[in-house]
Design a protein around this nucleic acid. Structure first.
Lengths: 141, 141
DNA sequence: GTACGTGCAAAATGTTTGCATCATT
DNA sequence: AATGATGCAAACATTTTGCACGTAC
């Protein structure tokens, strides 16, 4: 496990420190999409000295190198995800971020018009990283 | 125009103040997805006294009542949109939020599996407001 | 007239940065 | 040995809140 992380880091030319492996391990250990704060708490349990700033720095480095991803939420808190493959996030009414179950996800991705991303990028003239569907509000809340 | 805003507000039981109509007018006047800060600047031009806190309060009230919507971005700044119909936002590499052109948007929405939102909500057990597709990183940046 | 909105300043929250020290390569 | 990461605290940015006053209903 740790060896696996070491090789991932080496591949991306990331210096391998215990704090960084801790953060990465914490991030990959959960299906949730934790905030920096939450990751900090998770890491603290094993390595009490770790500072919040280091968690932020590490997350930056991970996102930079493509080992993690910042996921958008409507309420300005950053959430992170170690799953960097194409997949769908559902954002609930109370701003939780959940992965869409695989079968539904495939259903959606398979039904998407071919070449959508490319066509979109050429129309907009800039790379696109997320596509977000905003549902209009349902019945009164 | 102003009469129109008054009636929208009345419908939603929102008290109609000049600051609120200013903010709403500013928000509907643009296809961009402005931040609170930007809206504040826009409003200042016409009504210099308006405070940033009021802009935030107003945006809260507008989102609450369904006249506007907070749109998710990866970098923790809130952006707002007065178009509350189902539509697609493309989030670019530098965190700009752009509306997907209508034709592409229809193409996508029409090809979506039927009843997706309902099925998703029943599977997750909670209302869903956005669905966000994260594209995996393309070639090296 | 009352309930609610406003402006201001201060607080709360989330994230970044500067710098001396320490660890990985 | 050199480069870059860490921890701490302070800076910074964004959003929220408390309170006295004012305005829409």
């Amino acid at each position: 496990m740790l060896a696996h992380i070491r090789s991932l880091f080496a591949e991306k030319r990331l210096r391998c420190t215990s704090q960084r492996t801790d953060v990465f391990a914490a991030l990959t250990s959960t299906k949730a999409h934790p905030t920096a704060e939450q990751l900090h708490r998770m890491v603290q349990e094993r390595s009490p000295g770790t500072s919040l700033a280091t968690v932020y720095n590490t997350l930056d480095a991970l996102c930079e190198s493509g080992l993690a991803r910042r996921v958008p939420t409507a309420g300005g808190v950053a959430r992170f995800d170690a799953d960097t493959s194409d997949h769908l996030h559902a954002v609930t009414a109370d701003d939780e971020v959940m992965d869409v179950p695989t079968d539904l996800c495939n259903e959606v991705l398979c039904s998407m018009p071919a070449g959508l991303r490319q066509r979109l990028e050429s129309r907009l003239g800039t790379p696109v990283r997320h596509l977000s569907i905003q549902f209009s509000d349902g019945p009164v809340e």
